[in-house]
Design a protein around this nucleic acid. Structure first.
Length: 805
RNA sequence: GCAGGUGUGGCGGAAUGGCAGACGCAUCAGACUCAAAAUCUGACGAGGGCAACCUUGUGUGGGUUCAAGUCCCACCACCUGCACCA
C-alpha cells in the first residue's frame, strides 16, 4: 500500500504537538547557542517570500544547533517605532499603536507558518513602555557620562519626512527612507558621541567573524587617518589658521590654502576689494543642496585677498574659499599641495596658482607636471628635508613638526557624532527636562518610562519642532532638581534607538528592575549568530556595537562585541531582479504557497533557489520539485519501514556518504546544495530500493534526522512512524555521525584522457597502482591511442591522461 | 573615480586544478488511462554523422599547466557600497 504525503494533516498535527511539548529546554547543563534574526518592522503589507528566506535560514541553523545539544536562544520581536505607522496615523487619524498591534498580529500569524522554533516567551516590542523604559534609561546613562549632548548646528534635514537625520541615513545626498533630497537646517539637536568610540569600533572589527564586505564598509565609514595639524599665521595679523593634513611631508609644496565657505570668520578674512565676491560665494554655497554640491565636478572658489605664512619656509600663500573643502572634517581648512594632490592640482590649474614639486620618483624635477604625483619618491625643493625618502618622511614629519612648535600630530575620523533627535511623534521621548536655572536635567530614573503622550495631531510641524511641543500640559513640567517650572524636551529618538540594544533584552525580557540581569547576560550573551540583510551594514550594526561597548563601560555587560558571527542573506527579488514592494505590485506572499505545498516544501524551496548569500529571483514554478522530493521520500520511508530489510554494504556506504555530504554542506552554509544533496541521495536510495524492496532502518533514520532542520514536520512524522516516542529534535539522539573510512568506494569510474581530452572511462580500484590503471586505460582506448607516448599521468581516483605526439 | 561582488544550457543553479552542466524547473517522447491530471521511464548545450562517434563549448583576449569554469595578466558587462574626508 502506498502512503500518500498529506502535508496539511502532518503539519497541523506537529504544530499542535510542538506547542504542547517544547523541545528546546534549558536544563541548566547545556551550553547555550544564541541565534538571532534581525527583528522586523511590523509593516502593513506583511511578510513576503524574501523575509521568509532569512527566517528559514536562521531556523535551520538553530535546529541544527539544537540537535547538537545546545540550549537555544532563538527569539523574535518587533522594531515597531517608525514612520509608516505614523504616516498612516496622519492620513487616517488612527493611533500608531493600534495599527502596529494589528500588523504584529498578522505577521505573527505568518511567522507561525514558518514553524520556526522561536521562543515567544521572549518576545519584545520597542514601543512597549516596559521596553522603551530601558531605551530611555540608556540615554540617561549616556547623558550622565557626557556622551549625549545638545548642540546647535546645521544638520541633515529631510523636507519630506520633516525631520533631522543622522549622517548614516543620508545616501548619495538623499533620505535613506523616502529618497527626497536632503537639505541642511540649523537646529539644536541631541547628539551621541559615537566618535569617542571610533578607535574601539575600528580595532574590534578584527575580532569578528563577519563578512569581509561589512567589515570593510564599517572600516571606511569610521575612516581613520593619521597626519598633523599645522598652524599657518595670517599675514599682518596675530591670528592663525590650523589645517589638517595627512601629508605633512609635502609641506614645502603648499602654495595656497583653502577654507570651507562655512569656515568661521571666513568673511572677515576678505580684504575690502574682495569682500563682495567672498560674501557672494559664501551665500551661493549655503543655497546649494548637498546633492548639487556632490554633483558639481568643476571646482569653484574665490580668493579672499589675504595671505597666510607657510610656517616652514615663511613663504606667503594666498587664502581661498572653495566648496570642495568640507567644513565638518578636520579643521575645515586645508593646505594645498597641487603637485601631489589631484584636487589641489585641478584647483591650481583652474585659478593659475603656483605648483611646486616636492617629491620626485627619480629625484629630478619635472618641468611640466600634467597631473598630480601621488606616489612616493625622493624629497626635493624642501630645504633640509631634501634627499629624504618621502615615505619615511611622511611617518616622521608629524613628530618633526611638533618639535618645531608649528603644529601637532593628529588622528582624524570620517565618523561624525550621531544626530539623535527626530522631530516626529512615533518614537521614544527623550527623557530630558530643560530648566532655566539648572539647564538640561535628565528625568529621574524612577520616573522612567517617560510615556509618549497622546496627541490630537500627529502631523510633523516642519518647523523643526516635534508634534509633542504642542501638548502644553505635557511640555510644562517642573525641574527634577530645583522644582521650578521647566519644559520637557519634545524631540523623540530615531528608530535605531530600540534596535541598538533589543538583542540584550531577549535574554531577560520581563525584568522590571534592570535592563538585563547580569548573571543572565553573562550566561546567554553575546549573540553567536546574527542573520539578516546587508542593508544594515553600517547603520544598525554600528550603532549596536557602540551601545554594547558603552554598556560594558558602565558595567551592565562584560563583553565588547554583540554579534560574534554575522551572516547576510541575499535578497529575494521579483522578476528581473526588481525588489519586491507593494508599489511595484510584485510581492509574493507565502500564505498561498504554504496552503498548497505545505510549510516543509516552502522552507526547502526557499533554500533551494540559490546560494543563501546571493540575491535570487523568485520563480515559484520550481517549488513542485521539492514537493515531489518530499512525497518520494515519504514514500520511500514508509515502504522501507514495511519491508524491514537488512542493511547491505552498499546501503551502509551510502548512509555514511550522505551524512558526510549533508553535514559538510550545512557547516559551510551551502544550504542550496544541502537540498540538492537530499534529492540526489533520495534518487540513489530509490533506485536501490527497486531491487531490495526497501532501505535499512538505520539509513532511513539517519536521513530523517538530517532532514529534520529543513523539513521538521515530515521528519517528526517519519521519526514517530519509525517507533520513536521522543521528538527527532530531542538532544539525546544528537546529530548523525559518519565514518570517513566507510565513505570510500572500492572501485571508482575515472576518465581517460588523450592530450587532455576525455576518450574513455574505466572502472578501477580506488587504490589501483599506476601500472594497472594505465594498462586498463590503454585497453579501453584501443586504437584511439596512436602516436608515440610522451608522458603518462595517473592521479589515483581522479584521472588518467596520456600525452602523445 | 575607488573598493567589493557577479557572469556556466531555454531557466534556477552544481563542480578540493582532474569526465563541465550534479540537483531541480520547463520542454519533448514513451508507459499507465476511454481521456486528462497525477505518477513512472527515457531524451534534453550547440554543430555534424545512419551509427559507435567527431567537433565545439563556462562574458572577451592572452598566459601558466599533462590538464583551467577554477590559477595569473589585460579587458567587457551588470549589480552593490563609498565618493572632493585633504
Amino acid at each position: 500500500m502506498k502512503a500518500v504525503y498529506n502535508h496539511k494533516e502532518i503539519e497541523k498535527k506537529w504544530h499542535d504537538i510542538w506547542e504542547e511539548h517544547p523541545v528546546n529546554v534549558d536544563d541548566g547543563k547545556k551550553e547555550k547557542y544564541y541565534c538571532l534574526d534581525m527583528f522586523p518592522y511590523p509593516s502593513g503589507s506583511g511578510l513576503h517570500v524574501g523575509h521568509w528566506r532569512g527566517y528559514v535560514i536562521s531556523d535551520v541553523w538553530s535546529r541544527y544547533k539544537l540537535m547538537q545539544g545546545y540550549y537555544l536562544i532563538h527569539p523574535m520581536g518587533w522594531d515597531a517605532f517608525g514612520l509608516p505607522a505614523e504616516n498612516y496615523a496622519i492620513k487616517m487619524g488612527i493611533h500608531p499603536a493600534i495599527t502596529t498591534a494589528e500588523n504584529i498580529a498578522n505577521i505573527k500569524r505568518q511567522m507561525k507558518q514558518i514553524a520556526a522554533i522561536y521562543d515567544w516567551d521572549r518576545e519584545v516590542n520597542t514601543t512597549d513602555p516596559d521596553f522603551y523604559k530601558w531605551t530611555q534609561w540608556i540615554f540617561v546613562q549616556m547623558f550622565k557620562n557626557g556622551l549625549a549632548y545638545e548642540k546647535e548646528m546645521p544638520i541633515n534635514w529631510c523636507p519630506n519626512c520633516k525631520t533631522g537625520l543622522a549622517n548614516e541615513e543620508v545616501v548619495n545626498g538623499k533620505c535613506e527612507r523616502c529618497g527626497a533630497e536632503v537639505t541642511k537646517k540649523n537646529l539644536k539637536q541631541w547628539m551621541l558621541k559615537i566618535t569617542a568610540y571610533a578607535d574601539r569600533l575600528l580595532e574590534d572589527l578584527k575580532t569578528l567573524d563577519w563578512p569581509e564586505k561589512v567589515i570593510k564598509m564599517q572600516t571606511e565609514w569610521i575612516g581613520r587617518s593619521y597626519g598633523a595639524e599645522i598652524e599657518f599665521p595670517i599675514e599682518g595679523t596675530d591670528r592663525k589658521i590650523t589645517v589638517y593634513t595627512t601629508r605633512p611631508d609635502t609641506l614645502y609644496g603648499a602654495t595656497f590654502m583653502v577654507l570651507a565657505p562655512e569656515y568661521e570668520g571666513a568673511s572677515q578674512l576678505a580684504t575690502p576689494d574682495h569682500q563682495k565676491e567672498v560674501d557672494d560665494y559664501i551665500y551661493q554655497t549655503s543655497m546649494k543642496s548637498s546633492v548639487d554640491r556632490l554633483q558639481d565636478k568643476e571646482k569653484t572658489g574665490v580668493f579672499t585677498g589675504s595671505y597666510a605664512i607657510n610656517p616652514l619656509n615663511n613663504e606667503k600663500v594666498p587664502i581661498w574659499l572653495a566648496d570642495y573643502v568640507l567644513a565638518d572634517y578636520g579643521t575645515g581648512a586645508i593646505m594645498c599641495v597641487p603637485a601631489h594632490d589631484d584636487r589641489d592640482f585641478e584647483f591650481a590649474k583652474k585659478f593659475d596658482l603656483p605648483i611646486i614639486q616636492v617629491i620626485s620618483p627619480d629625484g629630478k624635477e619635472n618641468e611640466n607636471l600634467e597631473e598630480a604625483y601621488i606616489g612616493t619618491g625622493i624629497v626635493i625643493n624642501s630645504g633640509e628635508w631634501n634627499g629624504r625618502n618621502s615615505d619615511e618622511l611622511k611617518k616622521s614629519a608629524p613628530d618633526e613638526i611638533e618639535q618645531r612648535g608649528i603644529g601637532k600630530k593628529k588622528t582624524n575620523y570620517k565618523l561624525r557624532d550621531w544626530v539623535f533627535s527626530r522631530q516626529r511623534y512615533w518614537g521614544e521621548p527623550i527623557p530630558i527636562v530643560h530648566c532655566p536655572d539648572c539647564g538640561c536635567v535628565p528625568v529621574p530614573e524612577e520616573e522612567l518610562p517617560l510615556l509618549l503622550p497622546e496627541v490630537e495631531k500627529y502631523e510633523p510641524t516642519g518647523t523643526g519642532e516635534s508634534p509633542l511641543a504642542a501638548i502644553e500640559d505635557w511640555v510644562n513640567t517642573t525641574c527634577p532638581v530645583c522644582g521650578k517650572p521647566a519644559r520637557r524636551e519634545t524631540n523623540t529618538m530615531p528608530q535605531w534607538a530600540g534596535s541598538s540594544w533589543y538583542f540584550l533584552r531577549y535574554v531577560d525580557p520581563h525584568n522590571k528592575e534592570k535592563l538585563v540581569d547580569r548573571e543572565k547576560a553573562d550566561k546567554y550573551l553575546p549573540v553567536d549568530m546574527y542573520i539578516g540583510g546587508v542593508e544594515h551594514a553600517v547603520l544598525h550594526l554600528l550603532y549596536s556595537r557602540f551601545y554594547t561597548k558603552f554598556l560594558k563601560d558602565i558595567n551592565v555587560l562584560d563583553f565588547d562585541e554583540p554579534f560574534t558571527k554575522l551572516f547576510n542573506q541575499g535578497m529575494i527579488t521579483g522578476k528581473n531582479g526588481i525588489k519586491m514592494s507593494k508599489s511595484k505590485g510584485n510581492v509574493v506572499s507565502p500564505d498561498d504557497l504554504v496552503r498548497d505545498y505545505g510549510c516543509d516544501s516552502l522552507r526547502m524551496y526557499e533554500l533551494f533557489v540559490g546560494p543563501p548569500e546571493l540575491d535570487s529571483e523568485w520563480d515559484e514554478r520550481g517549488i513542485d520539485g521539492v514537493y515531489r522530493f518530499l512525497s518520494r521520500f515519504y514514500n520511500l520511508a514508509n515502504t522501507s519501514l514495511e519491508a524491514n530489510v537488512a542493511p547491505t554494504l552498499e546501503m551502509i556506504k551510502l548512509r555514511h556518504k550522505l551524512i558526510r555530504d549533508i553535514t559538510r554542506r550545512l557547516e559551510s552554509f551551502s544550504l542550496n546544495t544541502v537540498i540538492s544533496g537530499f534529492m540526489e541521495y533520495n534518487n540513489k536510495l530509490n533506485d536501490m530500493a527497486k531491487t531490495t524492496g526497501g532501505i535499512d532502518r538505520e539509513t532511513m533514520e539517519s536521513f530523517i534526522r538530517l532532514l529534520a532542520p529543513f523539513a521538521p514536520h515530515v521528519a517528526e512524522e517519519m521519526w514517530q512512524a519509525y517507533g520513536h516516542e521522543e521528538s527527532v529534535f530531542d538532544p539525546k539522539f544528537g546529530w548523525p555521525e559518519y565514518d570517513e573510512a566507510l565513505c570510500k568506494d572500492d572501485e571508482i569510474e575515472i576518465g581517460v584522457q588523450v592530450n587532455g581530452k576525455v576518450r574513455a572511462t574505466i572502472l578501477v580500484p580506488v587504490d589501483a597502482d599506476q601500472e594497472s590503471a594505465l594498462a586498463k586505460a590503454k585497453e579501453a582506448l584501443g586504437d584511439k591511442l596512436s602516436g608515440s607516448i610522451v608522458k603518462e599521468i595517473y592521479v589515483p581516483g581522479r584521472i588518467v591522461n596520456i600525452v602523445v605526439k
